[in-house]
Every structure is written in structure tokens, then in C-alpha cells.
Design a protein around this nucleic acid. Sequence first.
DNA 1: AAATAATACATGTATATACATTAAATGTCA
DNA 2: TGACATTTAATGTATATACATGTATTATTT
Lengths: 148, 148
Amino acid sequence: MRIEEEIKQAKFKTNKEKALVNLLYTYHWLKNAHNKQYKSYGISSQQYNVLRILRGQHPKPASIKLITERMLDKSSNASRLVDKLLLKGLVERHNCPDDRRQVDVLISKKGLELVEKSIEENNKSMEVINLSEEESDVISNLLDKMRG
Amino acid sequence: MRIEEEIKQAKFKTNKEKALVNLLYTYHWLKNAHNKQYKSYGISSQQYNVLRILRGQHPKPASIKLITERMLDKSSNASRLVDKLLLKGLVERHNCPDDRRQVDVLISKKGLELVEKSIEENNKSMEVINLSEEESDVISNLLDKMRG
DNA sequence: AAATAATACATGTATATACATTAAATGTCA
DNA sequence: TGACATTTAATGTATATACATGTATTATTT
């Protein structure tokens, strides 16, 4: 359904405005779909993001700073997200010997298993998204351009 | 900057995955920029969304249901958002005579003034976004397609 | 070395979000 | 009509977000 119908707005002053509104709308659409998945694993989307970053680093540790830099939502509180993941046994946290301000965060075996399963399920649900590889590349390049 | 550099991820398995991650990232980028603006007016982005919907209806009233349907984030709690706007004197809320379950929500003069100023400022800040009308149309159509 | 600045992370807080539940009004249909 | 379902909005709640502040450690300057 076109964005105009989704939010019942007859028209936009400019295409740029329409594109921006559509971006916000589509984000929430996508996030709601994702949330349902993550919820079945007992984690939030931000926690999932942290786990994916830690999986990318594995078996090397990541600092809170590194996690924050790579997160999709920079205003998330990585420190607290790691707390939550720790409570669930999905990560380990150690003092960093080189710099005692830093902490070494590692994904646990349990965390790895969860994230692998979750990625698999994610990929499956992504299949219904009706974008070719060419179209996906176009949209990604335009998003890059949008951010200047 | 390309998404790969923004989040320091060397490559993605598919362009589709890259596009989705880029969508999430760009959303947060855009939202952070917007938040600063709204904050200067003492409202949140969701409250701004409600005001724009009410402005579109003006001088007709809108029910909570209508607001919810048109919001970009469907999981927002329009009832509470209207509460907040009411406290600031930006909207009016009346019992609906036709259906006593419903409420008639109207934007106030003060609310109209705020939203007009805010839209103006918004448009100004949008100018830096480097997308042509053609590109904007392409991206919007692809987002529509993405949602099936 | 002592003073000062910068960094890395944790914590405090007010508000927002996500989702379930409740309450009142209206609709439906035997 | 009366019983039950549906609709509409408000409320309860646990958690998350946004942003400021605090605290310990390391780096830099004089």
C-alpha cells in the first residue's frame, strides 16, 4: 500500500517530504515485525543488535565504547543493555587488564546459539520482503546519500 | 558516509540485508536530528505527529482512533499523547455527542501556531538533505514495495 | 610530581514505549 | 428485550529511551 493510503494523507508538498515520512513509517512497520521475533527469544531489538556486534567480534572482546559506536541507535545505553544480557547469561563481562576503565564484553555460548537461531529466523521472515538485489542496492545508496 | 563505514561492518550477506540495516540506521539518524528541533518547542516527535494530524483535520475534530490510524508509529498511545498536549494547551478535548465512547480532539490556536512554526523550521532543516525530487520518488516507491 | 583534562563507563531521572487489561458505550441477534 | 460481542478510550505495568551527572582511571600539561 502506498504511504498516502497507509496514513491517509492525500498528498505531500514535495517528494522529499514524502520520502522522509515514508522512511519513518516503514521503520516502525519493520520494527514491529522484528519485535515479535525478538520477543519470542526474550530480548529487545537493541539487545539483539548488541549480540550481533559481539558475534562479529567473537572471540575477541568488545568494549562498551566499541558497541556504542557500532550500534544502529547511538542513543542506546550499551552499558545497561549489557547488564540485561548478562542477567540472561547471554554475555560475559570482564575487567580489561590493559585499561581498567574499560570492560571486556564477550558473547557466551548460549548467546551465540540464540543469535544464530534468531538470524536464521530473521532471514526467513525477510524473504517476504519484495525487493530485488538491484533495488536494495538503489535504496541503500539513496539512504547513504540522504545522510550527506 | 556509507553504511558499512558508519557501523564498521565490512560487508553484508545480501543487498537486501544491507538495505534493511541502512533503513534502521538512517531512521535513528533522522530521528535524532528531529528530536533536537521538537525539544526546542517542548514536544516529542510523537506529539508533533499528533499535532500535524489534528492540523490536517482542522477545523474538524479527530477521535483517538483516527489519530492512531494515521500515526507513523501505530504502537504509540494516542490517548496519553493527547493528555500531554492538553496539559500544554495545544489541543482541546470534548465529549463526542454522537458516540459517547469517542472523544473529539481539536488543535488549539496555540497548537496551530506551534505546529506552523515547527513545520517551517523542519522544512528549513530538510534543505540540507541531498536528495532530488526524482530520487525521493524512487526511494518512496521502493519503501512502499518493501512493505508488500 | 601535582594539577588539570579527557576518557570510559555507570547511574539517576523523567518521560516514552509496548503491551495487557479494564470500563463504558454501542451493536447484534436470538 | 436481554445476553453477548464489539468498539473506543483510558489505565496499569514493566521496560526502554534520552539525556544529564557522577566516578574511577588514564593522559597531558606545567
